[in-house]
Design a protein around this nucleic acid. Structure first.
Length: 885
RNA sequence: GCGCGCGUAGCUCAGCGGCUAGAGCAUCGCCCUUACAAGGCGGGGGUCGCCGGUUCGAAUCCGGCCGCGCGCACCA
């Protein structure tokens, strides 16, 4: 342990790689499947995209899940943290397409099979980088059992679910208005549409002449090009302005089609002219109205984003934007534009490609959700699945209660191809291709979230009844940010109940989204993103951060423990701003633990023959720290189990910094000196080692690296193996000592008061103040109080020249060179004044008839006893003041 | 527009009917240096978003505003 002498700082860069390697070699992350899920512990990681790189959200969620996994593993549960990646249809396909374009070729040139092979190759070569990054965090995922949503076995599970739902009539194919992503050239689901506010468009007022030749109806639109697909104009049935016109016909400008004027209560009378053009082929509301009134659906915009033949010769082949210009020009020429106004509104954009969503009618696969949603609502309502915080369960239930069919087909090549084949008018759906010639498989693939929905059981081998499934399903906790509560969590519950026969997890923890320090989203493009690895290794601070604070330049290498601690400490159930200070605090904690260990190891016998010494408390401070230790052990576990990770982390910090280092180690220093009592010193050594050992073990789930390293330095690794596979220390009720805590609380308060007095009276830092202790409750702590406050209570029994109030009495200061009597007198007067004002306040409160009559008896009694105590203290100081005067 | 949440010290937050509103970090001053770029003591800094109500008593409960975030639905 020679290193300890010289190394005064914990060095994460040196320690972490070594420790990670030992964890991974030990096999502790890969449990054999045995026992029942009820007694085991499992978490399915939200599978990162195979293209993904670690961002702050992963780091936070990784820290959270790892704390849970380590804590339960150390409580003796067989613990599996299921690992894997998501094939991420869109993201991955685009990644590979970009490469192809760089190579001067394209997906279409390769053909489907060759393209899919390329994606697999890409995945072999570059996929899963994020998994190595999880290792850097210390995440104890089951790396020996990695899954991928495109694995053969997983794919079989996906197809089986599809086929069953198809056979049950829940999956069907239909022509329906979908959210079309022109960038992707694929349909996307409602959840992948993002409404962007503040989009500025021009609203055109366009006159549609009446077929009768007399007059016109003016409609408003921001999308004049869709007029080519109009099949009616609607007005509100009660709108007097159009009362006589309902049932009459209009001539659609540029096209000449006759449009009936229909009445529908959907139309707002107070918007625009109160007349609404109806375009069932390109607007979801119009689609509904069209269905209601039996209107024709015309599509003038194709899946390629160009105007179709139905748009008419003049417009066919134009882009939507070109068509708009052309239509407006033509309307102008016809003298039909009545007004143009700037109009700011919300517009749907694709979350995937960032392009404006084009609603259009398309033949797609849909999944009916109502039947699946009902039981998924029930399990949350009846508490079988608990969502934390509870406010999120309202969102969950609300969404599921109004769930609409899910568009599950995507016009991509990378993904699970839909297991449906066509031959003429025949359709076949099955796990394997149909017999016979001439069948063609549906070219579409499934929405990636369809396969993710099976994650907690498909990763464990479902539909086979594997030992893994028995041992680990249902899982225990699903930890995620709220943005995928619907996209993923709700769907896992539905699918789990339907196919695995049980809920997929018992608790859902919805964690914070970490924002940039300035409150904006963390994002690469905004320059606000922070790479978690830059905090571990040191790396550039984003400019958006450095400029707005005192910090600038690179992050120091905080280390993985610091990052984990910091993220946990800033976490909550609300969104939080990233706080570098919390990471620095974690670094400080790791270093403090290291130095506390150094302190002990360099002074007491850490004989490896006694790796787990029993504590031998001999003094009140020994009994106190052992009692405090029981509290921090219990609190930490309770906070982890209650998903209160910030309190768990910060509570540990307070214990280590406050109770352990500031107080206990300082208190026992005299007992470790060369001339100290040898028997006491040996007993103290045992107590110190015990406290240190249990503190390290308790802290391990939160700061695993430094604690594992210290475990080794203290010799426990050699005798007992890794800390990561050791047990969390159990509570020892026999060591809970409220009497010792009360005495020490009093002693700490007194030491603080005496130190403050010294400073204010101007006593030299090194001087020992001779004094007499005239206070109750210090029978066992007097020597320590004197020691830490540098007072000598054995100095004799003379007449005090100054008095200091402490809990339970006073300290009388004897005359000496150390004390300036004038300053002491002023200090005494200040103390008396302060007491007097507190007494006045308390008297005033008790003189209030309303308070005494109406407040609860115990509140009044507490106020009375407080007043009594204040009066006693004041009397003691006054007696002294008179004596001095 | 509807719903949910949040506005407390420079920062991050705790407190959620009753001690003179706190902690950590930051900052300033003094002191110390005996495990620790550590420690000790003190100072500055708060109309607890605003207004009103309930109550003996409100940061805390209720109502209304204002601001921010999120979700849902969107008027063409």
């Amino acid at each position: 342990m020679g290193d300890l002498e010289d190394r005064t700082r914990f060095e994460p860069a040196e320690v972490e790689p070594r420790i990670v390697a030992r964890w991974l070699q030990s096999g502790l992350v890969h449990p054999e499947p045995a026992g029942a899920a009820a007694e085991n512990y499992s978490i399915a990681v939200p599978p990162p995209n195979v293209t993904g790189v670690l961002h702050m959200g992963h780091a936070l969620n990784g820290a959270i899940q790892d704390v849970l996994a380590r804590s339960h593993r150390m409580r003796g549960q067989r613990t599996k943290w299921i690992l894997g990646t998501d094939h991420a249809g869109i993201a991955t396909q685009r990644q590979v397409e970009k490469r192809l374009i760089a190579e001067g070729t394209a997906r279409e040139a390769l053909g489907r099979d060759a393209f899919v092979r390329r994606v697999w190759e890409w995945r072999e070569e570059h996929g899963g980088q994020i998994i190595d990054q999880f290792k850097r965090l210390g995440a104890t995922l089951d790396y020996a059992d990695e899954r991928f949503t495109m694995d053969k076995r997983y794919a079989q599970a996906v197809l089986k679910v599809f086929v069953e739902l198809y056979e049950q009539g829940l999956i069907y194919r239909d022509n329906y208005l979908v959210n079309w992503d022109p960038g992707l050239r694929s349909a996307i689901s409602d959840l992948e549409v993002e409404e962007r506010e503040g989009i500025v468009d021009t609203m055109y007022a366009i006159a549609y002449p009446l077929a009768s030749g007399e007059g016109e109806v003016v409609i408003s639109t921001v999308r004049p090009e869709t007029l080519l697909a109009d099949t009616a104009v609607a007005v509100h049935p009660d709108d007097d302005r159009y009362a006589g016109l309902v049932g009459q016909e209009l001539i659609l400008p540029l096209v000449g089609r006759r449009l009936e004027i229909i009445a529908d209560p959907y139309v707002k009378t107070d918007f625009g002219t109160g007349a609404l053009k109806i375009t069932p082929g390109h607007d979801s509301n119009d689609f509904e109205i069209g269905n209601k009134h039996g209107l024709e659906r015309i599509s003038v915009i194709g899946e390629d984003g160009l105007m179709t033949a139905q748009a008419g010769e003049a417009y066919e082949g134009l882009t939507v934007a070109q068509a708009r210009v052309r239509v407006v020009a033509d309307l102008d020429a016809a003298g039909l534009i009545r007004a143009r106004d700037e109009y700011v509104h919300t517009v749907p954009f694709s979350h995937r490609s960032g392009e404006r969503v084009e609603p259009l009618i398309s033949l797609q696969w849909f999944m009916r959700m109502d039947e699946l949603a009902a039981p998924a609502i029930d399990v949350v309502r009846d508490g079988r699945v608990r969502i934390h915080p509870p406010s999120q369960s309202k969102r969950y239930v609300d969404w599921l209660s109004e769930i609409r069919p899910w568009c599950i087909s995507r016009q991509l090549w990378w993904g699970h191809q839909i297991p449906v084949w066509y031959r003429g008018a025949e359709t076949y759906c099955g796990l394997t291709p149909p017999e016979g010639e001439g069948w063609e498989q549906d070219p579409d693939v499934l929405d990636t979230w369809f396969s993710s929905a099976l994650w907690p059981f498909a990763t464990l081998g479902w539909p086979d009844e594997t030992p893994e499934l028995r041992a680990f399903y249902p899982t225990d906790v699903l930890s995620t940010a709220r943005d995928i509560l619907f996209l993923w969590v709700a769907r896992m519950v539905m699918m789990g109940l339907r196919f695995a026969g049980d809920i997929p997890f018992t608790d859902v923890y919805v964690h914070s989204i970490i924002q940039a320090p300035d409150g904006r989203r963390m994002s690469k493009s905004l320059g606000t993103g922070i790479d978690p690895l830059d905090l571990i290794d040191g790396g550039p601070r984003p400019p958006a951060y450095g400029a707005s604070s005192a910090h600038a330049g690179d992050f120091p290498a905080y280390g993985a423990d610091a990052l984990r601690f910091g993220l946990l400490a800033m976490s909550s159930t609300q969104d939080v701003r990233f706080s570098e200070e919390k990471v620095a605090q974690g670094q400080a904690l790791a270093n403090k633990l290291y130095n506390a260990t150094r302190f002990v190891a360099l002074r007491v016998n850490t004989d490896p023959a006694h790796p787990a010494p029993a504590p031998l408390p001999r003094t009140v401070e020994d009994r106190w720290i052992l009692s405090r230790l029981q509290a921090i052990k219990a609190d930490t576990v309770a906070r982890v189990d209650g998903f209160d990770f910030a309190k768990a982390a910060l509570g540990l910090y307070d214990f280590v910094y406050g109770d352990l280092c500031d107080w206990y180690l300082e208190l026992v220093k005299p007992r470790l000196g060369e001339d100290a009592d040898r028997a006491d010193r040996a007993a103290l050594g045992a107590t110190l080692l015990h406290v240190l050992r249990e503190t390290i073990a308790t802290a391990h789930p939160i700061v695993p690296f430094v604690t594992e390293e210290l475990w080794g330095l203290l010799g426990y690794a050699e005798a007992e193996g890794l800390l990561a596979s050791a047990s969390l220390p159990e509570l020892d009720d026999a060591l809970v000592d409220t009497a010792a805590e009360a005495q020490m609380d009093r002693a700490i308060e007194a030491i603080t008061a005496l130190r403050a007095w010294r400073e204010q009276v101007g006593v030299q830092a090194g001087a020992i103040v001779p004094a007499v202790l005239r206070a109750a409750g210090y029978e066992q702590t007097a020597e320590r109080v004197g020691g830490l406050a540098r007072f000598d209570f054995e100095a004799g029994d003379g007449e005090p020249v100054a008095t200091i109030a402490i809990a339970g009495g006073v300290v009388g200061v004897l005359a000496s060179d150390a004390v300036d009597l004038g300053a002491a007198g002023r200090r005494l007067d200040e103390a008396r004044e302060k007491l007097a004002s507190e007494i006045t306040r308390a008297e005033g409160k008790l003189a209030n008839a309303g308070f005494v009559a109406k407040a609860p008896a115990e509140v009044v009694a507490a106020e009375r006893s407080k007043l009594g105590r204040l009066r006693e203290e004041h009397a003691a100081l006054s007696t002294q003041a008179q004596a001095q005067a």
